[in-house]
């Protein structure tokens, strides 16, 4: 095969044009356009839990279960309160009877008496869905039944969920459970029906001690955002890389 210089150049030119054609099909977006296409930058729901203020009354759990029609007498709940009792021997006793629905009235932990003189610290930690920025539960859904909205809340499509339970396994926080009535995956969604109408989630409203707060993390003037930005807050299981958006004040190292 012979190839003159002229042939080489014309072929190379044609090849370059041909290769450039598919690139021309792409649109080059400005950073602002990309941000607008990816998510609404004005709103990102975040949550703040002040464990110092929680007294373990369980009104949040009661309100959550009634507001979101989670069967009241089942042990599952979208939100729950844990009691931690650390004793002098270094042991941690943890319980959450009926998810803390009826509060904590019994000094016994799971039918085991703890000597009050031995208790070094004891406190309550409310838990709920962290509405992660990188939700592991959404990644594993095989049918696209769970997803993250543009304002950062992870929802479950009850019509589309096949009930395989992958997401329940994937959540490192144990937030998801199987809904006893609808037979699909169920989780806290910050009371999406309330927050999208300008109301607070049922648990936030029910809390008499302001241990639970919700806010818009994209708004620097929001009280929750101010606290998250200016005070010392922690998140649960940071090492999983899920980027949880529920921030805790006064989190103890015993809290898992």
């Amino acid at each position: 095969m012979k190839c003159s210089r002229r042939d080489l150049l014309t072929t190379a030119l044609k090849a370059t044009v041909a290769a450039a054609l598919p690139i021309a099909a792409f649109r080059f977006l400005s950073p602002a356009e990309v941000r607008a296409a990816v998510a609404d930058p004005a709103l990102r729901w975040g949550f703040l839990v002040d464990t110092e203020k929680c007294v373990g009354c369980g009104f949040c759990v009661k309100a959550c279960k009634l507001e979101n029609e989670v069967p009241y007498d089942t042990p599952v709940s979208r939100t729950w309160v844990e009691r931690y009792i650390v004793t002098r021997d270094g042991q941690t006793h943890i319980d959450s009877p009926m998810a803390g629905r009826d509060g904590f009235t019994d000094p016994k932990v799971r039918d085991e008496a703890v000597d009050p003189a031995e208790i070094t610290k004891s406190f309550f930690v409310p838990k709920l869905c962290n509405q992660c920025d990188n939700p592991a539960c959404v990644q594993v859904c095989p049918v696209g039944a769970t997803y993250q909205t543009k304002d950062g809340v992870v929802l479950v499509d009850r019509d589309w969920c096949i009930g395989c339970g992958y997401c329940i396994m994937a959540c490192p926080y144990g937030v998801r459970f199987f809904h006893p009535v609808y037979k699909v995956a169920e989780k806290c969604n910050f009371c999406y029906h309330r927050i999208s109408k300008g109301l607070k989630p049922a648990c936030v409203e029910a809390c008499p001690f302001e241990a639970r707060q919700i806010g818009n993390l994209k708004d620097p003037e929001d009280p929750v955002t101010r606290i998250v930005m200016t005070q010392r807050v922690a998140v649960l299981k940071d090492e999983y890389g899920t980027k949880p958006q529920v921030f805790y004040i006064g989190l103890d190292r015993n809290v898992r």
Partner: peptide
């Protein structure tokens, strides 16, 4: 049904489901 959120990984869903969740009746009125 399609990609509506951040990307395919997190935003692949039925768009109408968002309105369904927003339409849940409110029980606690304050």
């Amino acid at each position: 049904f399609g990609v509506h959120g951040k990307n395919f990984t997190y935003g692949f869903h039925r768009a109408g489901n968002i309105q369904e969740w927003q339409a849940v009746p409110i029980k606690y009125h304050g």
